[in-house]
Amino acid sequence: MSAFVEVRNLRRVFDVSKSWLERTIEREPKRYLTAVDDISFDIAKGETLALVGESGSGKSTVARMVVGLLPPTRGEVAIDGVSMHGSDGARDRRGLRRRIQMIFQDPYASLNPRWRVDRIIAEPMRAFSTEADDAACLARVGELLRLVGLDPADGVKYPHEFSGGQRQRVAIARALAARPEFIVCDEPTSALDVSVQAQILNLMRDLQDQFGLTYLFISHNLAVVRHMASRIGVMYLGRIVEIAPPKQLFGAPRHPYTRMLLDAVPDLAMSGRKRQGVAGEIPNPINPPPGCTFNPRCPLADDRCRTEIPPMLDGVACHAIEEGRAAPARIALPA
């Protein structure tokens, strides 16, 4: 497999200690939060890999490390063979930056309110000098606005003159400005209403077809992920517990957490299926349970699960499945 993006054993620890003075007075040790722990995945060119998980599972931290906004504590991210974080290769990295872009969740926060939209969209072109002169820049801004379904005349407006969905279109136009190959989307539609979400998701799919884009798509919404992804990684407390193509993941989920998650999603189908009682909540990531982090909520947990971290084997990290204690469940979804 010719992986375009390679992520190996990625780990990120945050220091969440109180200040030195408070620690000294209260005689507390330093405290660390492992947001992402030992994550590996590949993304092939033109593919969409989605990461889903509940809040605090580390999805966004992975996204920020992949684009290079956050240095990993350990592990490596390589895009097209170039390491994103090593001490050498700084020159190669500069060339790489143009090819990677990011779309953020909140279109109200990710656009500079004092800049006109044409300047916002032209910024990547100026930063990477992709266009010959200002006239070419301006022409491309118009072309990009049309591409994302806005009027080229909208370039002279400020972000506050647009609705949330239109702002997200501006953010997408900016992401496309420097002709990137890889776009990391962190919850791109979570702040939008469903009918607008549908417009943005359709637009993102069209752009992918048109330009052969590769996406890393972060979301907490399983239905959105199913719609967009060619492969899905399910995250729980900083680890990927299962990774599979959507058909397989939704048709025959294997990891107990994936099954629980799918069971919990309210669904429009109203199949009247009986829900399994979902037990418990995500534990505090500062002090995660030993062994498999899901063990306190898992119906299949045994002593081994409580002591030993399950390795990722054949797309799923679970002792019960490895030992054959759990038959892969088929959720009765009409085809």
């Binding site: 469903v194 979400q197 549908a198 998701l201 359709n202 799919r205 719609h227 992804a229 669904d267 429009l268």
Partner: peptide, 19 residues
Amino acid sequence: SIPSLESDGETRLVQIPGA
């Protein structure tokens, strides 16, 4: 316009134009 858990990922979502 609501993506479904049962979609095959091939179909386009219905789009209501405008806002």
